[in-house]
Design a protein around this nucleic acid. Structure first.
Lengths: 226, 226
DNA sequence: AAACAATATTGATATATATCATATGAAACC
DNA sequence: GGTTTCATATGATATATATCAATATTGTTT
């Protein structure tokens, strides 16, 4: 909602190293946009002109495998940069991004940002650190998920939603069963089956999209050991 | 072998944007080290003090899953930075690196490099671009491999060695069957079995570590469609 | 409200992959 | 030189996961 960057909490997170002039320059090229749940922010293959970061909401980053199947690479939380580092190394997006919940996104012209990187080394260093941390996390998570069996993956993803995203044992899933499958490399039927198992074992409660973790210890043990 | 950076071909690849003073600063903190096949360059968990890049040879980047199993994340070619971006976002390595072939590695003190990033924005930008390209590629490759069935993965990795690493249809595998398995998420027995199948189908020749691609078209088709 | 499409669910079955067992040759060790 | 260890190899079997099928449930469009 707020359109002045000065008061935006995100300033301190990323733009602390900029002086007044630089910050003004950035603000000039900056826009804030609102995306409704389901809307697409950018598409694989499109030219990259902007640098996005997520102010509020929830996004998914994904690739299209074929007409019926997508591969979800990661889920973006508020404060996340969107689009991995590829914005700096590719001319075109190598993935798509869409909104899982209504989201506010800050948009900065990539050229303006690149100029700042070149003129302000402190800022460059901060950006490099933050972006590299995010990239590492995505890769590590993908490697971790692939080591687990289906039960472990399902438990892992429930815990991710509870701990990392909603910070609560009870929450509404922002995704369909199919999307969970696409995120943790499973088939929809197996996601559903295993969710039902976990319910029958008294580890979680499910009712439609609503999930509540009953026995977190057991769920974590399943996430770790399958 | 050469110890003066001026003549090193790698200068133009990465350090073009530095002036004489800056370049001198970097050279001061720079060392070149030789690692024999099998030797470990750095270990998961160790403190990060240096920025490495591979001048000559071949490395593997991996994580230790348990006493008997490793997970190979990527293979580093000459010109590659070693260690993903985590060198900028972590204090300790989140993976290990060892030499698959005798290798020459340039070692720069991380602090010296960070200073340069902060003082020279052009250099920061170049580094950001190159490192992010590498990181993206690693992630993309991992996603791609996981979409394939075992036959597809095996074909893919043979083609990777032939096209990306040795640039020849005939080459000696720098890794054991077990390591191939750890690289493409399979079991050793299945790697061996499928290699034998491909041999029996007249698609490749194998003799110990030596591999020759006979029918590249079919191999590529298997890599793509399984 | 009816018709339709998408999602969720469960069961039965097929298939891919892992596991176990065994053998051989080569390298490492004492 | 003999013993041990590791890499390669192949077959038989077990297990995990995908696929197919059928039905309910929810959401969407008209």
């Amino acid at each position: 909602m707020t359109n002045t960057c000065d008061v935006c909490t995100y300033r301190s997170y990323l733009f602390d190293n900029l002086n007044k002039t630089e910050f003004g320059l950035l603000t000039l090229s900056r826009k804030e946009m609102f995306f409704r749940k389901g809307e697409i922010i950018c598409r694989e293959g499109e030219k990259i002109n902007n640098f996005y970061y997520l102010k509020e909401g929830l996004l998914k980053v994904y690739k299209t495998v074929d007409a019926r199947k997508e591969q979800i690479i990661s889920i973006s939380n508020p404060l996340d940069f969107i689009g991995l580092l590829s914005v700096f190394s590719n001319f075109n997006y190598i993935f798509s991004v869409s909104a899982l919940e209504n989201s506010s996104i800050c948009i900065i012209e990539l050229d303006a940002l690149k100029k700042l990187i070149q003129s302000n080394g402190e800022f460059a260093m901060t950006l490099l650190e933050k972006m590299s941390k995010m990239n590492d996390q995505i890769l590590e998570t993908r490697l971790l998920i692939n080591l687990k069996n289906l039960r472990g993956r399902t438990a892992y993803i429930i815990l991710m939603f509870a701990k990392d995203i909603y910070k609560s044992k009870k929450f509404d899933l922002p995704v369909s069963r199919k999307e969970i499958a696409e995120l943790i490399d499973m088939r929809t039927e197996n996601v559903i089956r295993i969710l039902s198992e976990l319910r029958n074992d008294g580890i979680i409660k499910i009712e439609g999209k609503s999930i509540e973790i009953i026995d977190q210890k057991r769920l974590e043990s399943i996430s770790e050991f399958g």
